[in-house]
Amino acid sequence: MTDPRCKRIFALLSDYLDGELPSSNCRELERHLQGCKPCIAYLESLKTTIQACRKYQVRQIPRPSPRVRAALLKAIHK
C-alpha cells in the first residue's frame, strides 16, 4: 500500500465500517475499492477483526462480594 490513494483510503476504513463516513468520502472509497484488491482484502480483514472483538466475552465471572451486594441493596431502598 504505497499508492497515495490507498494510504488515504486506509485511514477511512474504520469510519466506513462503522457507517460514520461522510457521503463524499464514502463515494470516493467505494470508487477506489472497485479496482483495488489489496484495499478490499484489508477492509474485509478489518471487518472480521471487529466482528471477532464484538463476539469476545470474558469467561468465569466471579460472584459479587457480599459487601457489594449489601451496599447496593441498601442503596436501592434509600
Binding site: E44, T48, Q51, K55
Partner: peptide
Amino acid sequence: AGATLKSWEITPEEV
C-alpha cells in the same frame, strides 16, 4: 492481496 483476502474468509463464529 489474494492470499490475505482468502485467509480472512474465516467467519466470526469460527474464530
